[in-house]
């Protein structure tokens, strides 16, 4: 990650202050995980696995623990799914969803920029017709990266916008159509139902398109993210996660429980507000950063 290179200071300090593995040492490890938003449940699961491996391998030196811990954590981040975007062969449609303010619109700008740089023809759909100036925000992004935006006016039906955008994508032989949606809290039934309407339109109008449904999660979010992921998965069959705002000091540890439980891979991470601040997710690097100081 850009701001937190390599070294796992926090854990290294801990390793230096304990030679032998004892309960106190394991408790301190636990603490590091909890402080990184891994959450109690997942932390306990990770610690159980860690203890098991330590016993099996008859490890007694703390110096060997770090590698084992990383190994366990990577298992939690590993899913049975491919972590690259499922968008070829063309055409493809990417629907971007999530709760309010997590970074959906910004991530769309970055993804579109990235795909365009790879030579793909990209089109954006301003499916957030609810939030004040959400359409303008996407239009500014479109101008910034040189990608067209299909939009209607504020307050219009998001399904209609997606419908229009699909027709435009077909007519203009677009490779990837990316649809923005309004932020919605997962516990609001009517807003979640609105998503299924959009899916019906895609099913009907664009069955030939490869489909990617990205859930955007804010790394600053705590245990609530688990509920977000579960509910959005039920409503929308998400195929990948974009974890944003990893350029702050939040560790995004909650993602470990989410990927392992829901078997949905993190595909991309956001590390800033600029068009280039998007990276593929690297589990190793992510864990290094999670175990590091600040």
């Amino acid at each position: 990650l850009k701001t937190r290179q390599g070294i796992t200071e926090k854990i290294d300090t801990l390793l230096k202050s304990y030679k032998k593995i004892d309960e106190e040492f394991l408790e301190e490890l636990e603490e590091i995980l909890i402080m990184s938003d891994v959450g109690m449940d997942t932390t306990l699961k990770i610690m159980d696995k860690l203890r098991e491996k330590i016993n099996d391998r008859k490890i007694s030196e703390t110096s060997e623990v770090k590698e084992v811990l990383k190994e366990v954590m990577i298992e939690f981040l590993t899913t049975s799914k491919d972590s690259s975007l499922n968008i070829s062969p063309s055409p493809a449609i990417i629907l971007v969803i999530g709760v309010n303010g997590v970074g959906k619109t910004t991530s769309i700008g970055k993804i579109a920029y990235n795909l365009k740089s790879q030579g793909k023809k990209v089109l954006l759909a301003a499916g957030d017709t609810f939030r004040a100036a959400a359409i303008d925000q996407l239009k500014v992004w479109g101008e910034r990266i040189g990608v067209n935006v299909v939009h209607q006016s504020e307050g219009s039906d998001p399904g209609a916008v997606v419908f229009d955008a699909i027709q435009a994508a077909k007519a203009r032989k677009i490779d990837v159509l990316i649809c923005d949606t309004a932020g919605r809290l997962h516990n609001k039934k009517n807003l979640m139902n609105e998503l299924s309407k959009i899916f019906k339109i895609i099913d009907r109008e664009y069955p030939e398109a490869k489909r990617e449904v990205l859930l955007v999660l804010d790394a600053t979010t705590g245990q609530n993210a688990i509920q977000q992921a579960k509910t959005f998965k039920e409503a929308a069959n998400i195929t990948g996660i974009v974890l944003t705002k990893l350029d702050g000091t939040a560790k995004g540890g909650v993602i470990l429980g989410i990927t392992s439980e829901l078997d949905v891979p993190v595909k991309l991470i956001g590390i800033g507000e600029g068009k280039e601040d998007l990276q593929p997710f690297e589990p190793e690097e992510f864990i290094e950063a999670l175990l590091s100081e600040n």
């Binding site: 990184s36 709760v99 600053t220 993210a225 000091t249 939040a250 909650v254």
Partner: peptide, 8 residues
């Protein structure tokens, strides 16, 4: 502050 914020 977003009420969903975690440890950070």
């Amino acid at each position: 502050v977003d009420a969903m914020t975690g440890q950070d």
